[in-house]
Amino acid sequence: MSDYIALAKQELSVTPIPAASIEPGAAPGRLSHALESVSVWIVLLLFWAVASVHLPQGENPLLPSPVITAQALWESLPDLWAGTLSSLAILIPGFALATLLGVVSGLTVGTSSRLQRVFLPFAQVAGPVPPTVYIPYAIAILPTFKLSAIFVVFIGAFWPIFQNSVAGANALEQRYRDNARILGLTRFEYQRRVVFPAALPHIFTGMAVGLAFSFILLTVAELFGANAGLGRFVQYYADFADYPRMVAGILYTGLVTFLAMTLLDAVRRRALFWLQ
């Protein structure tokens, strides 16, 4: 492939430089890129397999081999699926409520200097309290375990979303504010059509932090009083010293968390397509 530039009736040939010669030693195919990204997994898996066989372990090995774990995982899939549904029934309402209230209150506070003076000092104290400390109290106060767990997930996800929404509203560029004033937007139109979309990158950052917190709080809460769920599954088999199932539960929970974060990231990309 070559293009020509006519320069004073003389033709100069232009040939693109092959990528490989720019980056010496770069692998030529997609296959090798895929290999690069799975190499950590392969090394870890090998290490696990070797360690589980050669470490001196007793009758009930604390580190079950990959094969035994995979078998346990396969056998537990129906239980794990039921646990997933039970956990999501806590996670989704808690996280959704935290997102709704966190964004609405964060943008409202973030666009009013008076509300910031009122609420930010409080948020600075209440926000960093580890939400896990609320768990026993929430279980004592609220009528069902499910409600208490939803509340704890909500508290954990709320603060990062609130704080990032405030930051997003604060970061609104002057030119967009000027523009909104020239158009004569009402306060509600300004919030909905200017502040909210402009703050979306911040909001998604808050949601990602909030979602990670939600999973931590969910599984911790389930250790306290659940009769189902992913955290409960791991704790249950740990109590019986059934380490293959316990490890399978850990791996499965990791996968569910990863899928949830990936889903959120896909939504973020879609919502922020206009960002250059």
Partner: peptide, 20 residues
């Protein structure tokens, strides 16, 4: 005393809303 639709403005930087 404040902005009005009677007076339109075009800024030097592109002030269209990029999300619309």
């Amino acid at each position: 005393v404040g902005p009005s639709l009677q007076r339109g403005v075009v800024f030097q930087d592109y002030a269209l809303f990029p999300w619309l």
